[in-house]
Amino acid sequence: MISVTALTVSRGERLLFRDLSFHVASGEAVALTGANGAGKTSLLRTLAGFIRPDAGTVTFSAADPAEARAGHLHWLGHLDGLKTGRRAREELAFQARWAGADADGIAAAVDVLALEPLLDLEVRKLSAGQRRRLAFARVIAAPRPLWLLDEPFAPLDARWRAALGLMMQAHLDKGGAILAAVHDPLPVAARALDIGAGR
């Protein structure tokens, strides 16, 4: 699904990690662990194409990097990209359609994430957990094989952590792959990759 070879990334003068290599196969989940500031988010942002690495390569099995980033991966970072002054329905429609979802996909995401009661509210009126569910909806609505998730469960309660765990497992069962930066264990079977150890 995705292969990383001899990746070196620094931010300013600070080296985050050097010669990092790993491979994530279809159906596999990888939990990126490490202390605060170790470079978990920077690694995910590098894989997503936002950060240019100092050295090393990132290759996608299905497509060239530019094509893969435009249609093969989902990015869910700390920031959800939602506009606080807009209604949840409008933001969901934009985010999901921009990611390639159709009406059926959006309806399915609304259903499984129980978003219907929230759709007519302004985003600013949603709790952090509700916003995270709304942001996650595009991941469910527009199937893409690789999910890059940065602390995906942080604002969620136990019920929704478990529910999202089921959705992640369903994604893995369909041949998808997940890389998630986490401090707590993922709710699916996952291989741990300690970023701090690669420095």
């Binding site: 990015w75 990209g81 939602l82």
Partner: peptide, 16 residues
């Protein structure tokens, strides 16, 4: 700037 601050620019960059 607002898209950079709220993360929307990342989503937009990964669009079609």
């Amino acid at each position: 700037e607002r898209d950079l601050e709220d993360g929307a620019l990342d989503l937009i960059a990964l669009g079609p």
